[in-house]
Write a protein that binds this DNA or RNA. Structure first.
Length: 229
DNA sequence: CCAGACGTTGTT
DNA sequence: GTCTGG
DNA sequence: CCAGACGTTGTT
DNA sequence: GTCTGG
């Protein structure tokens, strides 16, 4: 699954990598410990404005929700469910986005506690998580734009640490995924699948990651781990 | 028909 | 145990 | 996802 | 808004 991730790229790198324009002026500082409920950059394609980068809240709020805090865990959407679940039907058809990431964390439970692992692409490039977004407006006029990250089965390499992983798109699939005119839901469903094992690597990191208040590049340094295992 | 839910993960 | 906050 | 709180009154 | 359950 994917309940915590890293985006260390700056805005210029995001613009360059996705050929997208930041919408408005938003502050963006790299986040080494992004948790559900925080604002993070997403890339989406508008009929008129074209491809934009915007900051949305992690944790999809359905447009029909009465309150922002629904109490549900919409920070992940199962790939197996996006076409059928009420909450994701419309987003899957017309509100797909890319969630840029440098890597993500998964925890392994051991007698010594929950040990975080940091997973990246071998080439250290940006990961393009497949995401869905939603636009919510409250009675008082408050507006919340939010997103969820699609998860799928783990590939063979990650299976030992976790049975789910985020759906990561190949570069050549991004255009298809973002195109709002693309209604080929069967073809789109085929894009959200386990990423090739050979292009993934991971290592243990400090349990400092566990507390979402902790931040900084030191979180993704390999943990020497002299005492466990 | 109306009422009520609408979600995922991990753990048992 | 379960919810909230980050 | 994990960590940390989980409550009220009255007073400053 | 839209689906499921009764």
């Amino acid at each position: 699954m994917c309940g915590r991730y890293v985006l260390k790229a700056g805005i210029e790198e995001l613009k360059e990598n996705y050929q997208a324009t930041p919408r408005g002026t938003f502050e963006w500082r790299p986040n080494y410990n992004a948790a559900p409920s925080v604002d993070m950059p997403v890339v989406l394609q508008h009929e008129k404005e074209g491809r934009v980068i915007d900051k949305y809240r992690w944790g999809l709020v359905p447009f029909w929700a009465k309150e922002v805090n629904t109490g549900y865990s919409m920070f992940n959407a199962r790939a197996e469910s996006i076409a059928s679940k009420r909450t994701y039907q419309k987003p899957f058809k017309k509100q797909r986005c890319i969630v840029p990431a440098s890597g993500f964390y998964e925890w392994v439970k051991t007698p010594d506690g929950k040990i975080p692992h940091y997973i990246t692409l071998k080439d250290q490039g940006l990961m393009s998580f497949a995401g869905l977004y939603e636009h919510w407006q409250g009675d008082g006029g408050q507006v919340v734009n939010s997103f969820t990250i699609i998860t799928t089965e783990s590939n063979d390499k990650l299976a030992p640490i976790h049975d789910r992983m985020p759906a990561i798109l190949l570069d050549q699939e991004i255009d298809h995924w973002l195109d709002p005119a693309n209604q080929d839901t069967e073809g789109l469903r085929d894009l959200v699948r386990p990423y090739p094992s050979d292009d993934i690597s991971f290592y243990k990191v400090s349990t400092a990651v566990n507390n979402a208040r902790n931040q900084g590049p030191s979180l993704i340094e390999p943990d020497e781990d002299l005492f466990s295992l």
